[in-house]
């Protein structure tokens, strides 16, 4: 790891101010993507701003049809939240599949979303649930937020404060783990909203998390696994590595989508 200067602000405004002053800085949330990257010397920020002490970035609230989760809320807090379990049980079920128990004790929602790893789970949830990503500067619709692998709408120094999820009537996530890394080789989140179904896929796409319009249309007409028969995603838009080439990933998108719909309709 390269040397850096460490900052520990206690408020969003203080963090924003530090970010404005510091050259070559990165925020650290749970650190479970950033620290391994820094250990490998693939990242070496001169300044590291720790968001861990900012109380206002944590917490889970429900207001009407919206569930709001603070950006620095750790996965374990989502798992233990009766509010989340009641509002969007699929979010709890998905969170149980993120990383491993130790990772879930440290990793945060905001960190995952800000990083937009192409194999992370939460971007799929945000997209399928039509979430709004709230920052210290503005509100960004999930559709506008995720802009390709490791790329988001966030500006330099902009801090995610919370994420608002409209509560769907039915939802589920089906994940096929990468055998080695255990990230999503393919993860499909389906959510039925009053105005239609949204289907988001992570892990598979060469450009990061994406929605599948054809599946959404079919499921909006008939929210059943059979409605997906004959629908496939284009192989040339899929990722490929030694564990899964594009054809296999494209196939798994179909399988996981059907399994997610089955799970959602069973629930």
């Amino acid at each position: 790891m390269y040397a850096f200067e460490y900052h520990r602000p206690t408020s969003v405004s203080e963090a924003a101010k530090l970010a404005g002053q510091a050259d070559d800085m990165k925020f650290i949330a749970g650190g479970h993507t950033l620290l391994p990257t820094m250990k490998m010397r693939l990242a070496g920020p001169a300044n590291l701003i720790d968001l861990g002490q900012i109380a206002e970035l944590r917490g889970i609230t429900r207001s009407g049809d919206t569930l709001t989760i603070g950006a620095m809320t750790r996965y374990v807090e989502v798992l233990n939240s009766a509010e989340v379990r009641d509002a969007i049980p699929a979010l709890v079920e998905m969170t149980e599949l993120v990383g491993d128990p130790h990772v879930r004790h440290r990793g945060t929602i905001g960190g995952s979303i800000a990083n937009n790893d192409p194999s992370a789970d939460y971007p799929a949830a945000c997209l399928a649930l039509n979430a709004t990503i709230v920052t210290d500067r503005r509100k960004i619709a999930a559709d506008d937020f995720f802009q390709g692998i490791f790329t988001t709408a966030l500006d330099e120094g902009e801090i995610i404060t919370q994420v608002s999820f409209p509560i769907p009537s039915q939802a589920a996530y089906a994940k096929f783990r990468h055998p080695a890394s255990r990230y999503a080789l393919v993860g499909v989140f389906v959510a039925k909203h009053t105005d239609g179904v949204r289907v988001a896929v992570t892990g598979a796409g060469s450009n990061g998390v994406f929605r599948v319009a054809e599946m959404e249309d079919a499921l909006s007409r008939n929210f059943a696994a059979d409605a997906l028969n004959g629908i496939s995603v284009a192989e040339d838009e899929m990722n490929g590595d030694i564990h899964a080439d594009a054809a296999y990933r494209a196939h798994l998108v179909g399988v996981m989508a059907r399994r997610a719909v089955q799970a959602a309709t069973l629930g």
């Binding site: 650290i28 650190g31 391994p36 720790d50 861990g52 440290r106």
Partner: peptide, 10 residues
């Protein structure tokens, strides 16, 4: 937690 993925200062 994995103590290899937590800074002492954290």
């Amino acid at each position: 937690v994995k103590s290899c993925t937590v800074l002492a200062v954290q």
